[in-house]
Design a protein around this nucleic acid. Structure first.
Lengths: 226, 226
DNA sequence: CTATAACTATGACATTTATCATGTTATAAC
DNA sequence: GTTATAACATGATAAATGTCATAGTTATAG
């Protein structure tokens, strides 16, 4: 039995469609990397020529703007694939991928993925559905950015982070984002984000435990989000 | 020779990968519709069970918000496929599709597409790339929404419309959008959009010919957009 | 051909959000 | 442990954008 077979990525991603032989092929071609918090897996413009499996940790896909702000497009966690889009489009990465918490990732060369894509219908359908899921989410985010206020988007994002990543024993959010990163997700200035967190704190919607955030009134947050 | 073979959609979309037999199969299963300006092809929540080929005309994919504003996510023109995402995801439509100019579309049932997807690697790759293209565009739009001002987005959108759809003999933009629709694309209030168009007009970046818009200083618009 | 509705336009004003300034607190480096 | 650095926080202010009101203009139906 080889390592890829039991891997969380294999269980959660499009790779679940692979058969035994394919998994062996996969295990033989992959390369494993450790990425420390803050480090990049790839940068905007890099030609990656493959995809990255996220075995552990949390990463962000983001784009730096002219004025130095880092807009976060998506967070990724263990079990997900990274860099599918640019690999399929045959283009350099449109976004940078960086670790928010220490990560363990495996690189799978493009040739492998294309091989699976061409020979395994279920895999190609899975991959397709995964990109479609990203597309739907991106479109909905886009609409939320325009139609909701910063306050609504912050409430929505806090709930989303809670759902996606869960909470620690002390009930604080498990993903440890800086205020700047949080601002980068909701698309606002860092100061505005901090100010609103203070407001939410005063309203007892959340509690600020140092730099950590604890959701105190989920119902009210939900009401605020829509 | 059957009709689908010469169709513009067949030439431009993922369908270009189909072989002769497949095109015949396609021609036998399709249904043609005429959609008048303003009418819907499908609405948010509809289960479409197939894709629509845009043979002629212009359509918009949009989502209505709680406050009654219609956010436009994408414009589609002849040669493109519509409803790929929700068909692949097996979900009701996330967006509404409506005609902006009279349209001619063909409906292709899901069973056909899935059949092509499973039996024609080039087709599945094409389809995949098309969704990836949409994803990239959506992500970049999302970033632009946050990082650019309304003024910049208007300039950018005018240039984009010019590139995508071209101009009439009188040099005005070929796509005839209402100010409200234009506002829905850039994500702003209709009044703000009108006001900025007036400003651009005074600055001689554009000229307002009745409801039509003519680009007068493309260079300056480009400068303004970034 | 008129009347009705939809679209375009603009002013006045309110609200939201960004920016700049400054101080505090936490974290990391030595 | 102390110093340096990054992260958090908050006030003051400016800028951008939305909202409401109102009016002119164009298209459409009958």
């Amino acid at each position: 039995m080889n390592k890829c077979d039991q891997c969380i990525v294999r269980q959660l991603s499009s790779l679940k469609a692979l058969n035994k032989d394919e998994v062996i092929k996969l295990a033989n071609s992959k390369t494993t990397y450790t990425i420390k918090k803050g480090e990049a897996i790839f940068e905007e413009g890099d030609v990656t020529n493959g995809v990255f499996c996220v075995k552990d940790g949390v990463g962000k896909l983001s784009k730096l703007s002219a004025n130095g702000k880092d807009q976060i497009v998506k967070l990724v966690k263990s079990g997900e694939l990274l860099g599918q889009r640019s690999m399929i489009s045959n283009e350099p990465a449109n976004l940078s991928a960086k670790a928010i918490a220490d990560m363990e990732v495996c690189f799978i060369p493009k040739s492998e993925i294309i091989h699976f894509f061409n020979n395994n219908n279920q895999f190609s359908l899975n991959l397709m559905q995964s990109v479609c899921e990203d597309l739907k989410e991106s479109e909905n985010d886009k609409i939320a950015l325009v139609q909701k206020t910063v306050k609504q988007r912050l409430a929505e994002t806090l709930l989303h982070l809670h759902n996606e990543f869960g909470e620690n024993e002390d009930k604080t959010l498990k993903v440890q984002l800086t205020r700047e990163e949080l601002a980068g997700i909701i698309g606002t200035a860092t100061e505005s984000c901090i100010r609103l967190l203070s407001d939410f704190n005063k309203l007892e919607l959340i509690e600020l435990v140092g730099k950590k955030i604890m959701l105190k009134n989920v119902k009210a947050l939900k009401r605020m989000a829509e």
